[in-house]
Structure formats: structure tokens, C-alpha cells
Design a binder for these strands. Sequence first.
DNA 1: GTGCTATATGTAATCGATTACATTTCATCA
DNA 2: TGATGAAATGTAATCGATTACATATAGCAC
Lengths: 344, 344
Amino acid sequence: MAQKIARIQDVARAAGVSTATVSRALSNPELLTEATRQTVFAAIRSTGYRVNRAARNLRTQQAGAILVLVPNLGNPFFSQILAGISAAFGSRDYSVLIADTKDHTTGGKHVVDYFLDAQIDGMICLDGAISPEELQLFEDNGVSGKIVFACEWAHDVALPSVRSDNVRGAQLAVRHLYDLGHRKIAHITGPQENVLTHARREGMMAERTRLELPAREEWIIRGDFSLDSGRKAGEQILAMNDRPTAVFCCSDQVAFGLMSTLTSNGLRVPEDISVVGFDDIELSEFYVPALTTVRQDRRELGARAVSLLLDCIDASQSSQTFATEPVIVDVDLVVRASAAAPNW
Amino acid sequence: MAQKIARIQDVARAAGVSTATVSRALSNPELLTEATRQTVFAAIRSTGYRVNRAARNLRTQQAGAILVLVPNLGNPFFSQILAGISAAFGSRDYSVLIADTKDHTTGGKHVVDYFLDAQIDGMICLDGAISPEELQLFEDNGVSGKIVFACEWAHDVALPSVRSDNVRGAQLAVRHLYDLGHRKIAHITGPQENVLTHARREGMMAERTRLELPAREEWIIRGDFSLDSGRKAGEQILAMNDRPTAVFCCSDQVAFGLMSTLTSNGLRVPEDISVVGFDDIELSEFYVPALTTVRQDRRELGARAVSLLLDCIDASQSSQTFATEPVIVDVDLVVRASAAAPNW
DNA sequence: GTGCTATATGTAATCGATTACATTTCATCA
DNA sequence: TGATGAAATGTAATCGATTACATATAGCAC
């Protein structure tokens, strides 16, 4: 049977004090005498009291929760970032809510509703493809100070963000291929409007130019981060007259899709063609061949995003403005087996 | 600037009715005259009113949220189930909270706290390894009627659950290998205490017995669902004198880890050894070789879990008892390239 | 028109915690 | 001793929505 849950009143009665004292024991214990504090805590234990979040939230006008907006929960990269965020909240007094952006644009429910329904105090957005309308809604409703972007970010919008050093990641990848002896390097991009696509492609092309490598239009292949776009890109590469000897992919998933197509068409990786990915998801180490890739520090990204968000929330409560300089997290090249010297 | 958010009072004033009428317009519109209903909705629109969840929750003694307890967010299988659950809630009036079991057992915070703090109305648990103490806590606090298990389930505990037909999945896998001509079939299990481990291993061994296949002790290798345990199992297999010709793995991740080790030691899959997985995560199609595996219907599992949970919550509100017969979701064998006829 | 019922709407208590303000307690010192 | 101020505690208003109960209104039969 569910026994009646103790309310703050019950604790107060048990301890022989007022509700105010009980409340203070929880939020400002230093205001109380050692003796009363002990009595109150004893009463809390004996009654099994738990603060009712709804009541507290109503009174304090807070929600005690933050929302993480994920473009695609099924994608291991995002779910691992999510794990990082979840871990970073750790013992803090916040619940983590999640929403998949796909569900909500279709369901007619806007993300801003979470704020307006007083359900969340802030949001970490992993999806840079927020529509301008949605952003305008945030602005109009005065909640844009409680949003930080992580990994991706909204183009042209000065909101706080945490991101990997995508440009450097691309440079590292190209440079590594160059050092192995490759000159004909292709790139499979993300979706056209995506900010990561842009950063990584520019980083790649800048490095290619710097190293005076040949650039062919068809070596920049449009993808969308997915396994399937890697597969399709592979088909395009197979059909080329002047094939690249190496491919830098905008994500590990794309690299897997690519390698899958290449190998099932008789090309060997890395003997016939080298492949480099981006992300270093857990599986990359266990692919055949193990994937050489640019590592994003998911734990760090998550932790930084959380602390940035908490800072934003603090600032927005004291109605300060908040610096919007992006936080850049360093990346590493993880050298494994999928890239090797070209087979002249 | 954040304008003052409209309260139900403001709407009532704007519409020239009482707060009760506004509240009814939202929850029981059929009680109102067409005319007043229109007026109220117009006022809601013009004021931009949103119901304050904290206030509603306090008054109705509900939380408007459910918790999904995930053993490991980084694991694509779980995150895809989570996506299914999230999608299944869709437009319903619930928020989805997540927690990684690892964080909480370490953080000292118990899952039951979510219930007791009146933050959630129910829970979907994807982790069968809930400690007896925790379960007892649920029982003691009368919340065990608001919990359903999905995929995994707690051993010896009669709580509602949704699960794949694990035994049949194992049978399908073994049967497929048998039909290809394999007789020496090994199995990499999950962690020892896990319910899935047990179901799949028993299914596998029963089928092996039925088909009168040889059974060697060392062909049952203990793993833990992870990539790394697949790798270790691979090393064990490589060291065997009497090697199996096929391996049925308890998860796709294990299969990847295994294939990674086998191939980097010069064995070819499937020419030298066949491999079958379990789960059919998205990547399985794109591994090299593409993985033959037992498909779990994630969308269906998620959807069933959600509707089962909602039924439980309803029942527990009207203090009915609820049937605890597990819901079994069918599985399919997906035949790809990682299993082929043995190379005698 | 009166009485009765059904329908529509209003009034005000309530959920449980927080906190401004009021009051009590107590130590300190002239 | 009594005055003074600081520290500890209590009283009660408050957050915003829901809903039991009260009241008003309309419809209908006689």
C-alpha cells in the first residue's frame, strides 16, 4: 500500500517547529541552531519526507529541468553526447528532458512550448537546423538567453555555443592523408545548410589549397552524415573516371556507409582507397578496417555545454547579458587502419 | 524583453468570465456554450496564455512526465529504443525524462526519488539489473504499479514488461546456421545475471540439442553485450584447438567486436567462420561483411511499452490490479553476408 | 405563472512549499 | 537592571490552476 506521503507540515509537527523552519533546514541550514537543525533532520528522516517539486517549482517560478533537443536519437554520436550531458548534470538538482526535433516539427508542438509551459529552465540544442521562425519565437518570448548550442550551432545567430574545432579537425585529416602520400583527396560533406558541413568543408578545402593539391569539382560529394549517404557517395566514386585515392568523410557513419559500398564492389580499404572519418564513435575502433578518424571529445562537449547553460541561466536571472563567444573544444586525429599510403 | 506571462486570471478577465470557465474550456470544452467557448479561446489566443505546468501538477497531484531508465545511453540499441519511446509519446501530454542507471547508482540518488519527489507519473525501465533493494523501495513506496520493463525485465518479479521473443530469436539464428551446414556452433553470451543472456542462451542450447549438434563447454563464451567483450571472445576462439565454424552472438555489438578481432588475425568472415548477431542495429547493414542478425522491432517495442505504461498508470489511479503477462514482440532473422556455408 | 430539471457559470478552498515580515529569544553592555 | 541589536523562529500571503459546491439561467410541463 502507498502510505500517505509526508508534507512539510507533517515534518514541522513532528519536529515541533514551523514549516518555515523546515524549509530553511533544507535550503539555508546555516540559519538554524545546531539543535533545531538536528531535530528537523531527524523529523525528516522519520517521516520519510520528500519535497514536492511541483509545489516548489510553482512557488519559486522554476522548473528544475532542462531540455536537450536532439536531431536524431538513433544516431550514436548524438546519444553519446547526450550521455555526456546527462553525466555532467550528475548530482545537480536538474532533470534532463529530451526531445527529438523530428517529432516536434511534425507534431505541431513547438519547442518554445516547453519554456512557455514553465516546464524547463533552459535548453541545450544539438541541432543547428532550427528554423528562423522558431528562433524568432524564442526571441519574442524572451527565452533566448536560456539556450546554448552544442556541437552544432545556429548560423548567423549570436547564441552561446560549445563546439569542436571543426576546421582544425578537417585540416588534421587532410594533412594526415597528405603525409601518407595522397594527393587526390575527395570529401563527402554533410547536408548543404548545415554549419558543420560548412566548417569541415572549408577546413578541408583550405588545407588542400595550402598543400597545393589538385581540386576537382566532383571530389566534393554532397552527403548528410548518414550511413546511407555514405553508401550513395561510394557509388558516385566508383563511377568516376579520375578516382580520388583517399576520401575524408564528414562523419564516421558516412565513412562506414562508404567503406561498405567500396568493399562490396571489390575495392579494398586502405589498399585501394583510404578513408578518414569524423567523430570517433565507439564503433570506429571495431570496424573492419578500424577507422582512422577525427576524435570529438564528447564528454568534454557535454560538460562544457552544461556549465555554459548553467551560467546562462544564472545570468538571465540577474538579467545580465551573457558573452556569446563560442567555446571551442580541441580535436585529435586517431590513426587506425583505414588510411594508408596510396597504392600507385 | 520577456513580457509578463499571462495567467488564467488574465484570460478570465479578458474574456469576462471566471477562472473556472477558462479552466473548463481547456479540460472539458463540451461543458461550455459554443459562444463562451469561442470567447474564451479568443482570449487565450490574444493573451498568449499557457497553462503553468507546476501549478496544474500541484493541484492535480500528477507530474506530467515519465522517466526512461537506460543502462547505457551510448549504446545505439538503447538509444534507438529510446527514440521509439519518445516517438510513441508523440503528441501525448507527457514529457520524457531520461536517466542513465550508471549515474544514479553512483550518485547516491535512487530512481525511486523521482517518484517520491512527485516528478514522474511512471517509468519505463530498460535495465533488468535493478537491485532487489531498489525493487523493495518501489514496493514499499507503492510505486511498483507504475513501472514497466521494456526489452529487459527483472528476474523473479511480476512487473509488466514488453520484450522480444528472445528464445525464438536464438532458435532462428541457430537454425539458420544449421541450414547453411554448420554443426559446430559457439555462442557469446551477455553478462551472467542478465535475463536476456539467459533467454538467448537457453534458446540457443535447446535448438542445438534438438538438432543434435555437438556441444562443447568452451563454445559458450561469456561476454557482456559490449564491443570489447566481442573482441575478447574472438581472442578465446582463436586460441581454441577445436574451433567452431559459426558463432551466434548475443548482440550486434559483440558480433562487431568479434569480427574485428577475427579479421585482424587473418580469419575471413564468413569464409572461415560465420557470425550471427542479435538486435539489427542500423549499422549492421553497413558492416563489412553486412551482418546476418536477429531483428528486434524497436519501434514496436517502444510503442508497446508506452501504451502498457499508460494502461498501468490508469489502473493504478483507479487502484485496480493490472495483468502482468509479458507482452512478446516477434523477431525476424535478417539474412545478410556474415554467415555462409562452412568451408570444409 | 409556478415548479421542476438540466445546463451553464461563478465562488472560493485547495494542492505544498517558500519567504517577506513579524515576533521572540538571547547575549552584551552601559 | 534594562536597553539594544542580532540571531532564531513563527505567521501568513503567495505562486497558478483545478474543482466541489453554490448559484444563476433556460427550457419545459402543467
